[in-house]
Computed example of a mutant assay.
Amino acid sequence: MALNTSLPPEFDRGVVTNVHQGDCHVSAASDVTFSTILGSCISACVRDRMALVGGMNHFLLAEQSGSARDRYGASARYGAFAMEQLINKVLTRGTGRKANLEIKLFGGGKINSVLDDVGAKNIEFVRQFLEDEGYVVTSEDLGGSYARRVLFKPYSGRAFVRRLDSDVGANVVRQELAIARRRVVMPASLADIELF
């Protein structure tokens, strides 16, 4: 992973697939790059290093609840769903062995005081989720006070992060605020998925 202003050559060619909030994409093609822009949202990049298949998701956790069953509330179950969906897709298309997975995490920035540091809650959630499931994070670029663009090559596992200027960050804030105000709740059937 590099923090730089110019793209490494391998990210400057091939097919680029944008990963928007709520998306989960997986590929084994050597010419595919997944791209996303994050504010307080989180993207996980998961790759089976033996099968050379990987994917990226993108999710926002809008609020925390005091529920004993789920201390992050219904919106966090969306985050759990997003993580389980990505991991399951990579396992299914890969070797099926959890030990072969590499996991990289990005995002969780505090880019606007109105969002009540959703980014920090997102970071806490995703770290705890992965720890509870027995996964180790290979690398991460989390937190900070800026938006970031993340590029990920699922075949090679390489990731590239670019910190974005305040104009782009302001646009990301507007989008995240609109989503947080809607507070979309996932049906329980989608939230209760087990990893295999």
Rank of each mutant, 00 (worst) to 15 (best):
G109C: 12
Y72W: 10
R49A: 13
N18D: 14
A180V: 09
T36A: 07
N88E: 10
E140K: 13
G143Y: 01
T95I: 08
S166Q: 12
F11A: 09
D165V: 05
V185H: 10
S43D: 03
L190V: 06
A68W: 05
V168W: 00
Y146D: 12
Q128G: 14
L164Y: 04
R69V: 03
N100W: 01
A120Q: 07
R71H: 11
E140R: 10
L151I: 01
G14M: 02
M186Y: 11
P8C: 05
E133Q: 15
R183C: 11
F196W: 07
L52F: 08
R69E: 07
I123S: 04
L190P: 08
S30M: 07
L177W: 02
E194N: 15
L190W: 13
Q175E: 12
V126M: 05
G107H: 02
M186P: 11
I103E: 00
E194P: 09
N112P: 03
V185Q: 15
Y135I: 04
E131W: 00
L91A: 08
L91D: 09
A188P: 07
A29R: 08
F129R: 13
R158G: 02
A82E: 02
Y78G: 15
A191M: 07
R127Q: 14
L177K: 08
D116M: 04
V114F: 07
L38Q: 07
I87C: 09
L195C: 08
H58F: 09
V26S: 02
E63I: 10
D167L: 08
I111A: 06
C24Q: 01
D141N: 11
E10K: 00
S67M: 07
R148G: 02
P9H: 01
I103C: 01
Q64G: 08
R182L: 13
P8R: 03
S43C: 09
V184G: 09
N171L: 13
A68C: 06
E176W: 06
C45W: 02
S40K: 01
E84R: 13
F106S: 07
L105F: 12
L151R: 00
